[in-house]
Amino acid sequence: MNIFRFAGDMTHLASVLVLLLKIHTIKSCAGISLKTQELYALVFATRYLDLFTDYISLYNTLMKLIFLGSSFSIVWYIRYHKIVRRSYDKDQDTFRHYFLVLPCLLLALLINEKFTFREVMWTFSLYLEAVAILPQLVLLQRTRNIDNLTGQYVFLLGAYRALYILNWIYRYFTEPHYVHWITWISGLVQTLLYADFFYYYFQSWKNNVKLELPA
């Protein structure tokens, strides 16, 4: 464990807690893409298949349970909670996320480190996580203005993967044989997808104006 990875995990934890807090307190999911939340639940479900088979550390197991629990409860809130679901804008959240799932699955079947069920599922979860934010970014473009909780959520989500890139660089130089091209490339693609959002986020933060995304 290194400081970059720990900071990355804490940032990732903060992003899901910010979202849960928003939905739980103001009972609204305005501006939140259910599609992205469903994709994230799928990412965790396919990545943490080893939850009960490989014990790595208490921290690892605890964090996996938190990420699984939070992502599925966010999906539950938006889908089934009688008050929250009313604020879900399904006419705007129309990204066909199946068009993301299938290519990622095919790619995972083609490019992976070992052709086993667990390894393909894990690789699938990496590719899917890289693009899972797209429905949310599309929704933000459509609804133009975004409330700061959603802005913070997306920012933290992007920051966590950027910290993970520092973690991979650190581990590459400190651990022999630590080479995982698939992880690194999908993590880089993921961070680059946030890049333009980061740009506008910092612009609005610097000029102290409400975050407006160009249409």
Binding site: H12, D54, I56, N60, M63, K64, W122, T183
Partner: peptide, 10 residues
């Protein structure tokens, strides 16, 4: 023998 299997990251 690797101390941790490769999947030690979240």
């Amino acid at each position: 023998y690797q101390k941790h299997p490769k999947k030690d990251e979240l």
